[in-house]
């Protein structure tokens, strides 16, 4: 089970301090409002895979729009695994 904190740590690491100051990170935050490039989003998703030893359905991962979607996807796979 991962939490929004795990995810926001990962995002901060990826953005290396370039995260807009006024942005609120919660489950409704959309990936595109964080200013992440497509490469950075993929980096986050596939780092999650690596760190938790799971494999997402790539089509579902590509459909994820909010951090909540991404959390749900990860936890769903973690529960099954």
């Amino acid at each position: 089970m991962i939490t929004i904190e795990t995810l926001s740590d990962l995002i901060r690491r990826e953005m290396r301090g370039k995260l807009p100051a006024d942005v609120q990170i919660d489950e409704t935050t959309r990936l595109d409002e964080l200013g992440l490039s497509s490469l950075q989003v993929s980096e986050i998703v596939f780092t999650l895979e690596d760190e938790h030893g799971v494999e997402f359905d790539p089509a579902k991962a590509a459909d994820a729009q909010t951090l909540g979607d991404l959390l749900a996807l990860t936890n769903e796979v973690l529960e099954v695994g």
Partner: peptide, 10 residues
């Protein structure tokens, strides 16, 4: 890239 090259991203 998530749609087109999940194999490379993995």
């Amino acid at each position: 890239p998530m749609r087109y090259c999940p194999d490379i991203l993995r």
